[in-house]
């Protein structure tokens, strides 16, 4: 036992230094050198101001914007300093209520729309920070956004299509629309595309 103590302590200290200091610093160095933007959080600036991250979903309640995935982070939605899901079980009445109220909110914002709501638009994401919605969820909102912004549906649809990403390399993941980027583009749109 005694002969084991010295190697145990020495190895622990040295391997800790290698894996806990040298390794992360090395990755940071390489990351900052090769991919500085990504390493810093893929931040987006508008007019010199940071408006968010391409990868982090924001809370949209204004009907003139596309809404993103519901977020269950506390104390407020899309809290990027406290990620997490709702953890509601499938049979939990609270889940049913939450979904029903989201459907209701969508309906109220867009009274003419009688289609069933796409599921990802009424269920909380895992991280609470999901930057994407499905193309179906975006399409569901096109008419509303167009109407409230006084744009043609085609124009908004067009914009949405341009911001729709297919499966990565055709197989990985799901088709999706980045809500923040779409809404930013939407904000840039009005002047020239009014009917």
């Amino acid at each position: 036992m005694k002969t084991l103590i010295r190697p145990a302590i020495t190895l622990f200290v040295l391997l800790s230094a290698i894996t806990g200091l040298i390794y992360p610093l090395l990755v940071t160095g390489i990351g900052q050198a090769l991919f500085p933007e990504q390493a810093a959080g893929s931040l987006i600036e508008r007019d010199g101001k940071r408006v968010g991250s391409r990868l982090i979903g924001q809370n949209f309640t204004d009907p003139t914007y596309f809404w993103g995935r519901p977020s269950a982070t506390g104390p407020y939605p899309n809290n990027a300093a406290a990620s997490g899901g709702s953890n509601l079980g499938p049979l939990n009445p609270a889940l049913k209520e939450a979904v029903e109220s989201r459907v209701k909110a969508l309906r109220e914002a867009d009274p003419g729309n009688t289609q069933p709501a796409p599921v990802d638009l009424v269920t909380a994401s895992a991280s609470g920070l999901d930057p994407h919605i499905s193309p179906a969820a975006a399409e569901y909102q096109v008419a509303r956004v167009a109407r409230l912004r006084g744009l043609t549906s085609e124009a908004v649809q067009n914009l949405m299509d341009r911001h729709t990403e297919d499966r990565q390399w055709g197989i990985f993941g799901e088709p999706r629309v980045n809500v923040l980027e779409l809404n930013l583009a939407l904000d840039r749109l009005p002047s020239e595309q009014k009917p």
Binding site: L95, V119, T123
Partner: peptide, 10 residues
């Protein structure tokens, strides 16, 4: 069942 799932992963 998309509750608690990310859109990009489905």
């Amino acid at each position: 069942n998309m509750e608690g799932k990310e859109t990009r992963f489905g």
